[in-house]
Amino acid sequence: MTPVPLEDVFLAAAALFVVLAIAMFYRAVVGPTTQDRLLAVNVLGTNTVVILALLAAGLDQSWFLDVALIYALLNFLMSIAISKFTVERGGVL
């Protein structure tokens, strides 16, 4: 009834998100300030969470969603921690 299987739709969307995440690496590499790089890595983390959820639906492995939940938590903690460190100590190291 449907023109293509539903799993292929999810895998194609995950492939498009991977392409967009690779394009986002440009800003993470050349970004002039630390905050530019941090912002790009934060968006990359969100893209990773979405890719994990799409793979969980496409491959029918619902335990990928647990990994995505933990990844979203760690991504948030990383952004907050690095932005605090850059203000109070002038850098991560």
Binding site: T33, Q35, L39, N42, T46, S79, S83, K84
Partner: peptide
Amino acid sequence: NPTAAHAISRSAAET
């Protein structure tokens, strides 16, 4: 994620 974006922008403003 809006909280993280706010924190990043604020650290950019304070540095």
